[in-house]
Design a protein around this nucleic acid. Structure first.
Lengths: 97, 97
DNA sequence: TTGATATTTCGTTAAATTTAGATATATAGT
DNA sequence: ACTATATATCTAAATTTAACGAAATATCAA
């Protein structure tokens, strides 16, 4: 867990919003065609209002920081929260700070 | 407490280091000429290796985010951690995230 | 293989951040 | 009033980040 990378990833409101959505997928993505168990399809995050390529970049930042994990199924990529990293971050920032 | 401003303030390693130093002033600033009770003198943070103006800017970012409070005594400005804001941040980020 | 859909990567532009030097302000001491 | 010290602010350069459209890649379906 690279604290610096994680904290920078959390430094953008859209990325924090995405993580919050992923906390309760059934609440925010009930309309998803695929089963939510595999994760939330990348395209679903278009709701943040940014262009598709920008959303993809934000998701990549979250993934590089280890805050989400991905799984490709066919032409889709599904995203899940990585609760381990999030918990580790909260522990470390609570300690360091 | 503006979460966005706080998290951005924490997004720079030097600013986090300053907050950590301020956690134990007697440990890191035992050489200060002034009593540590009033806070840590701005000039003491030169040890981070950056120029005076840059240090001053970082301190201003921390202050605007409410992470530190200041007190001017004569020609000096003394900085203290603002534990209330820090605690509020940890609470909120732990809840939102 | 061709076409359609989903996603990432690339190229570019605009905006924000970091940094330092120079200048300005505040205060102290003589 | 003048000088020295401490700090903040201004200005400019370099770097990073955010955003988008276009192009590239991946997979599926016919």
């Amino acid at each position: 867990m690279d604290l610096d990378e994680v904290i920078k990833a959390l430094g953008h409101p859209v990325r924090r919003e995405i993580l919050q959505w992923l906390k309760e997928p059934e609440k925010h993505f009930a309309d998803q065609a695929h089963p939510l168990e595999v994760g939330v399809c990348a395209g679903m995050f278009a709701r943040c209002g940014l262009s598709q390529s920008t959303v993809s970049t934000h998701l990549a930042v979250l993934q590089r920081a280890g805050l989400v994990s991905t799984r490709r199924i066919g032409q889709w990529v599904f995203y899940k929260r990585n609760d381990d990293t999030i918990a580790a971050f909260l522990r470390q920032i609570g300690q360091e700070l």
